[in-house]
Amino acid sequence: MVLQDKLGRRVNYLRLSVTDRCNLRCMYCVTKDFKYIPHPDILRYEEMLRLIDLAAGMNINKLRLTGGEPFARKGFMGFIDNIMARHGEMDLRITTNATMIEPLVPDLKRLGVKRLNISLDTLDRQTFKEVTGRDHLKDVLATIEACLSHGIRVKINAVAMKGINDRELGDFINFARNNPLDLRFIEFMPMGDETLSDSRFWSADDILRQASKFANLIQVKRTSENRGPARMYAIEGGKGRLGLISPVSSHFCATCNRLRITSDGHLRTCLFSDHTYNLRGIMRNPKLGDDMLRKVIAAATRDKPLGYHLLESRKGCEGVCETQMSAIGG
């Protein structure tokens, strides 16, 4: 079975949140009305494996595990091991804040994990504490160094925020110049009860103009393997690359190939849509089986919306959706 929507977009990428728990309290993720999902509503690892098995049979060949912070969930390394044993051909990636995993890097390599996306919004210790509520910058940097030394590819995701990390652009460029990694700025997206503030929003085009003052940037052509949302730029004379992701100022809905499943088992076909499909309810109903799950996933995919149409319908400075980021999984 090939998953395809009414617009002809083929879906082969699944983002699966394993938990909404996290050891950080990032300002753009934990909103004032933040609440954890009740534990009984969180999918068990066995249920997640069942969904991954189904996804693999529906032509999903790329899987990203997210949170919250996925490594904050007990037994997560064993879960990775089970996935790799059952679906070694799948392109498995993990998004993490990297604060607690430096000792685990050799084991991740042994399990076959080839790529990590690491969330890092600043290279300044004090700013890190202000953004995340915790003092863990040195732990993140140590994890990045360990990954690179063990041959695990690293992508750094930095949420671009005026007045927060815009003054560090030159430092970020130098970090990418000196290390073989991709450093990607993502435009700030207000979620839940947040609003889009002109004083904080830092557009991808502005970042590119300012970054060009610090380095000669050479745009990388898109290929069949490099069809993600980031515009990538090689840094002349450098080891790494700069990427720009612009979900707000310049959408990439026409090429979106992903589905999301939240940690409480709800299928979400678009980040900007609050409409979800309750897969957990189907899985925990003994009268329903995998055929029903397949039908719901296929039907939901067919109705996958264009996110920018949803953004246009929202008023003024409203958030891009009503759900907080920690509950979605990024």
Rank of each mutant, 00 (worst) to 15 (best):
M1S: 14
L3V: 09
L3G: 14
D5F: 14
R9Q: 11
V11S: 14
N12I: 01
L14Q: 03
S17E: 11
C22W: 05
L24T: 06
M27L: 12
V30A: 10
K32N: 10
K32V: 11
F34L: 08
Y36M: 04
Y36R: 04
I37N: 02
R44W: 05
Y45G: 01
R50G: 15
I52F: 00
D53H: 14
L54K: 12
A56Q: 03
M58C: 15
N59D: 15
K62E: 15
T66N: 10
G68A: 12
F71Q: 01
R73E: 09
I80F: 04
D81H: 14
D81P: 04
N82E: 15
A85Y: 03
G88T: 07
D91E: 13
A98E: 00
A98P: 00
T99F: 09
M100I: 10
E102C: 02
V105S: 06
P106K: 02
D107V: 01
D107Y: 02
L108A: 02
K109I: 06
R110E: 14
N117G: 11
L120A: 06
L123W: 09
F128K: 11
E130C: 04
T132M: 07
E145C: 06
A146E: 11
C147N: 07
L148T: 02
I156N: 08
I156W: 12
N157V: 12
A158R: 04
A160H: 09
M161C: 09
K162Y: 09
N165D: 13
A176F: 07
L183N: 00
R184I: 13
R184W: 12
M189S: 08
P190D: 04
P190W: 01
E194L: 14
F201G: 11
W202A: 11
I207W: 09
Q219S: 12
R222D: 13
M232K: 03
Y233K: 05
I235Y: 10
G240H: 10
G240S: 11
R241G: 08
L244Q: 08
S246A: 14
P247A: 10
S250W: 02
H251Q: 11
F252R: 06
A254N: 13
C256F: 01
R258W: 00
L259S: 09
S263P: 05
H266W: 08
L267H: 00
L271S: 06
F272M: 13
H275P: 05
P286E: 04
L288Q: 13
L293C: 15
A298Q: 14
T301S: 13
R302G: 06
D303M: 07
P305F: 01
H309G: 12
H309I: 06
T323Y: 09
Q324C: 07
S326N: 13
S326P: 05
